[in-house]
Simulated scan of single mutants.
Amino acid sequence: MTQSIRWLQDEIADRMLQKLDIVKLNVRDILVVPDYPADHHAAVARRFPDARIHSVIEDGSSRLQLWIAKARANWRSIFRRSKTSALAHLHTSNKFDIPDNSVDLVFSNLLLHDLADPKLFLQECWRVLREGGLVVFSYLGPDTGKELRAIQGGALKLKNLRSPWDMHDLGDALVSKRFSDPVMDMEYLTLDYEQPQLLLGDVEALNLANANPHVEAEISDLPQKLTLEIVYGHAWALGKHLAKSQDSVAYIDVNQIGRKTRTDSH
């Protein structure tokens, strides 16, 4: 994503937080991935005023920009020690640079479609979440940019989403990574454009096509709208004391089983 699409990131972040209104969650630490210097910090700080926000910084953002954004959103955040790492590190290692069982909420906005394997991301979320923690995410679904497919070729070189998973695919992936009670839903957003260069700017910012300054001149029938399929989901990290399940059966150590005793009175 680039600066030109910040409004979309903030809008989707607001919608994600609205969906959390019905969720009861005691949050001490949040991991925001990707994090970027925009208005979403104020919304997150209002929703979780006492939480520390750990950041995986979006490519192209600076730590200073992010620090200023956090301070503006909630000045108390500048006195809280939090962890900061780069999104590039996640792309290369599939790892978050934070310890096991260290956050109560992973908040991931418009990222999963850009990952080579979202299952590895979910695996990392499971690792860093505390017992009873929540992962909440949004991403672009496979119908995104469907208007462009009819005119692709020549000057317009479309790029496939790295992970064009629909909400059923992600729901299955959550279950396979041991998350509980996954909830998935989806909506379509339609963006209308008066000028083709504005559409092409968003197409590039959304990473749907390679940049080409000659596209507008070479293609006369560019659409005046762009469809975004936004997929939302959340799931709980429960039963982390259980050993990894096999064949849909979870195994636990015998020492983890409590024994109830009864004292008979005479």
Rank of each mutant, 00 (worst) to 15 (best):
S4Y: 05
Q9F: 15
D10H: 11
D10K: 07
D10G: 11
I12H: 08
R15L: 10
M16D: 04
K19D: 12
V23F: 06
K24I: 13
V27F: 13
D29H: 15
V32K: 12
P34E: 04
D39W: 02
H40G: 02
H41D: 02
D50I: 02
I53V: 13
S55W: 03
I57D: 00
I57A: 03
D59V: 12
L64K: 10
L64E: 14
I68W: 11
A71M: 11
W75D: 10
S77C: 07
I78Y: 13
S82C: 11
T84Y: 04
T84N: 02
S85T: 13
A86E: 15
H91N: 10
S93R: 15
F96A: 01
V103M: 03
D104R: 04
F107P: 05
N109I: 02
L111T: 00
L111N: 00
L112F: 05
D114T: 08
D114L: 09
F121A: 01
L122G: 01
C125V: 10
E131Y: 12
E131T: 06
L134M: 09
P142L: 05
L148V: 14
I151D: 07
G153N: 02
K157T: 12
L158K: 05
K159D: 02
K159Y: 06
K159V: 06
R162N: 12
S163N: 08
P164L: 04
G171W: 09
D172Y: 12
V175F: 07
D181C: 04
V183H: 11
E187D: 10
Q195H: 15
L200T: 13
L200E: 04
D202Y: 05
V203M: 03
V203F: 10
H214K: 09
A217W: 08
E218I: 05
D221W: 12
P223F: 11
L228Y: 13
G233H: 08
H234N: 09
A235Q: 09
A237Y: 14
K240M: 04
K244A: 08
S245M: 08
Q246L: 05
Y251H: 14
I252L: 11
I252V: 14
D253L: 10
V254N: 13
N255M: 13
R262N: 09
R262G: 01
